[in-house]
Amino acid sequence: MAVQKPESDTIVAWPHPDVKNDLARLRQSSPLTHCITNIVVTNFTANVLLAVGGSPAMIVATEEVAEFVRIARALLINVGTITGHDAAAMLKAAATAAETGTPWVLDPVAAGVLEFRTSVVRELIRYNPAVIRGNASEILSVAGAVGGAKGVDSTASSLDALPVARKLAEQTGAVIAVSGEIDYITDGKSVIRVPGGDVIMTRVTGTGCALGALIAALLSVTESPLRAAASASAIFAIAGERAAKVSQGPGSFSVAFLDQLSLLPDGI
């Protein structure tokens, strides 16, 4: 699967057999996934994991996170609405994950926009996340590049960020998953391209954040972080496409998206 040029990358999309097998394994084991995420998307993220057959837990107390990381199969840290209390809990959870070998995903929401969250993200990376997932501007900012970040929206394309993502993967040892019109996932050597989805997914709060949670859940049942990120993106892409066909706007799409996740592999 290793490639040298984006134009010759590996394409992964539903119904790729590896993706279907990874989803089946997730449903069979229902991995307990510890999510320290932002307050805007907590409910949606939990429902996404339940829809695909996972087991979410939203434990955020600084006094409890270390204990729970030791129980969980995987961890998500999303800095979207970070506070000082959150930062302490996130750093404690990440340190525990590094100690116990619990695989975890970092979602550096709006990194590069504000110094506090950016500094916390830098500290979190020291604890070796298995996957760093973000839009192009976030990944560029995390890598110290100029990404033109604007809030949580990306002003750069996922393809623009790919060369920097590959270098960031080499520097950190993490798989870098760049979300966009086409998702690009790289470990610094291999590049996987995941097409699909629908533009309406950008008008619903929480789709990107929930993708990070699904990647975390899949980390515990797949053979590599690269495969976990690719399978999660492919699952989201097909569910998004199918949900868009039966919805009338962002509200009905949110419901339809959860339905389509739960209906896979058959769908509509």
Rank of each mutant, 00 (worst) to 15 (best):
L106A: 03
R117Q: 08
A111D: 05
A149T: 06
G112I: 10
P108R: 06
A165E: 08
A130Q: 15
G151P: 06
R122D: 08
A149F: 00
A143K: 00
D107V: 12
L140W: 01
G147C: 09
N128L: 07
L168C: 04
A136W: 10
S158F: 07
D153G: 00
G134P: 04
D160G: 14
W104F: 15
A165C: 10
A169Y: 11
A161P: 08
V113C: 08
V113G: 01
L159T: 09
Y127L: 01
W104I: 12
A165H: 05
S141T: 01
L162G: 13
A149N: 02
D153Y: 06
A136C: 09
D153E: 13
A169C: 11
A161D: 04
I139P: 01
L162Q: 14
L140C: 12
L106M: 13
A130D: 14
A161K: 03
R133I: 11
V164K: 04
G134V: 12
T118F: 06
V164S: 03
V131L: 13
A161L: 10
D107C: 04
G148Q: 04
S157T: 15
D160N: 14
I132N: 07
W104C: 12
A136P: 11
T118Q: 06
N128C: 05
V152Q: 10
S154M: 01
A143Q: 01
S141P: 00
A110R: 12
V105H: 11
A111G: 09
S137Y: 01
G134K: 07
V142C: 00
I139F: 11
R166M: 15
V142N: 05
A145F: 11
I132G: 05
R166L: 06
G147Q: 04
K150T: 09
S137G: 03
L168Y: 05
R122S: 07
R122Q: 14
L162E: 13
I132T: 06
G147W: 03
I125M: 14
A136F: 08
T118I: 13
A161C: 07
